[in-house]
Design a protein around this nucleic acid. Structure first.
Lengths: 155, 155
DNA sequence: CTGCCTGCAAACTCTTTGCACGAAT
DNA sequence: ATTCGTGCAAAGAGTTTGCAGGCAG
């Protein structure tokens, strides 16, 4: 899905929900879709302000749940206090695991379709219906440990 | 593992680390091991104070990482802002998944040994060594949805 | 006795919210 | 014209920390 196609999808989502397509919301959307890595709300605010300097922190925090609900943005909570956001450019499976490198703080996303099966299996035994699942692996950089340098750190 | 055996293990852990076995730390330990369900730091503080009313919030927060490191206590972060704690009475596998009921807020723990294999597999592809993994399923109560009452809620 | 540990309260981080103004439809 | 949306700043929740005094070893 191209960024402009996603942008249209966002506009449609807003219209359908009876929400307005304001300059600020679109700037935040564009900021999010310009990102390659996972970013925090604060980083998104900075970037959105470089597009439209009228964007405020409050609006970022108010817009993030909307974008998350539209499935155009994925929210990732790795237990560090702050949440990370990542554009869902493929529009595809939401069954994704994360591998978090504790050395470079990078977040890698890995498709993990079996999570859905697991959630169903385990929930039904408890009389529950799964809503969502998360699978995260925290890890250390092997190269850094051995050679003192993380090859990915160089970027 | 009995509670008193765990208590001894905690004392030994403290000694080995050169830490002192203070009244407060032991009260917090006892409070944690008296719990059946998952509790927050605040709930633990209340309970610890009923054992020794000199226990302060600061000491609870300072003691929790020590107990977690000793593996006698398990920390569970389900992304609700506060962390939950649970005594590791079996002393066994740390490979545990959580099923969180969004209706009654209960946390169910489920042994998931395959997580270790998964962590290894996925990490090695990235040149990483896994440190820990978490698998969580959020779910809704089926009985509550159908009959309006959660059988577990009654407890 | 020595210095690790403690309680207190203030500080901190991330996020949410009340209010009056502003702009999308 | 109507509302919904906005920026600002203050509030909020959970956790951490600086400091002066207290207790374990």
């Amino acid at each position: 899905m191209s960024t402009s196609a996603a942008r249209e999808k966002f506009r449609r989502f807003l219209a359908q929900k009876g929400l307005r397509a304001t300059r600020q919301r679109l700037a935040i959307f564009d900021a999010a879709f310009a990102q390659k890595d996972h970013v925090t709300a604060e980083q998104l605010l900075d970037y959105a302000r470089s597009i439209d300097d009228s964007v405020s922190r409050a609006t970022v925090y108010r817009t993030l749940p909307i974008m998350t609900e539209s499935a155009l943005l994925r929210e990732v909570d790795i237990g560090t206090g702050e949440k990370f956001y990542h554009p869902n450019k493929e529009g595809g499976s939401t069954q994704v695991a994360q591998v978090v490198c504790l050395d470079c703080d990078r977040i890698f996303e890995i498709s993990a379709p079996f999570m859905e099966w697991y959630g169903n299996t385990v929930s039904s035994k408890l009389g529950l219906t799964p809503v969502s699942q998360r699978l995260q692996v925290s890890a250390r950089c092997e190269a850094l440990r051995l050679t003192g340098t993380c090859p990915r750190r160089a970027s």
